Computed example of a mutant assay.
Amino acid sequence: MSDTQPSGLVEIPRSVLSIAVGMIDTVERVVIGDANVRTARRNAWEAICADRARADRHNEVRRLISQLSVGSSPRSRASQAAVGPSAGRRAARS
């Protein structure tokens, strides 16, 4: 027996696969247009943009949280004063 496979059995699947990939690529370009075909470069750019947007949202949330620190405004101090005594009375009743 020979250690090598007959080339005919291997070449048929490769050629069929090659034709199928070429046909899928052609159909994609026809259906969605050349400008909308996904590429590695376009995928990388979209990932960079998504990371930047996520970082911007994260920074905005941090900024908002820092502004909402307890006692930073007269309104929050008034609400703290109103909640404080009633919370103490509820604890005393229990």
Rank of each mutant, 00 (worst) to 15 (best):
M1A: 11
M1Y: 10
M1T: 03
S2R: 12
T4F: 13
T4H: 01
Q5I: 11
Q5W: 05
Q5R: 09
P6R: 13
P6C: 09
P6D: 02
S7V: 05
G8T: 10
L9N: 12
L9P: 00
V10A: 05
E11W: 02
I12N: 01
I12G: 06
I12W: 00
P13T: 02
P13R: 07
S15H: 14
V16M: 12
S18Y: 10
S18L: 11
I19N: 14
I19T: 12
V21Q: 14
V21G: 03
G22A: 02
M23E: 10
M23P: 03
D25M: 02
D25C: 04
V27S: 00
V27D: 01
V27G: 03
V27N: 02
E28F: 02
R29G: 01
R29W: 00
V30L: 14
V30K: 01
V30A: 09
V31A: 02
V31C: 03
I32Y: 06
G33R: 01
G33A: 08
G33K: 00
A35W: 09
N36L: 09
N36P: 05
V37G: 01
R38K: 15
R38S: 08
T39V: 02
T39S: 13
R41G: 06
R41H: 04
R42C: 02
R42W: 05
R42H: 11
N43F: 10
N43W: 03
A44M: 07
A44V: 03
W45I: 12
W45G: 07
W45P: 00
E46I: 08
A47Y: 06
A47M: 14
I48G: 06
I48W: 08
D51L: 02
D51M: 08
R52A: 05
R52Q: 05
R52G: 13
R52W: 03
A53F: 12
A53L: 07
A53T: 01
A55H: 11
D56N: 11
R57Q: 02
H58Q: 15
E60S: 02
E60N: 14
R62P: 00
R63G: 06
R63E: 11
I65P: 08
I65D: 14
I65W: 07
S66Y: 09
S66A: 15
Q67E: 12
L68N: 15
L68C: 07
L68Q: 15
S69H: 08
V70T: 07
V70I: 13
V70Y: 14
S72M: 01
P74E: 03
R75N: 15
R75C: 12
R75A: 14
R77K: 10
R77C: 06
A78R: 04
A81M: 14
A81S: 10
A81V: 03
A82R: 13
V83P: 00
G84K: 14
P85M: 06
P85I: 13
A87S: 03
G88A: 15
G88W: 11
G88M: 15
R89H: 09
R89G: 07
R89D: 14
R89T: 10
R90F: 06
R90W: 03
R90A: 09
R90Q: 06
R90H: 10
A91P: 10
A91W: 01
A91L: 09
R93C: 10
S94P: 00
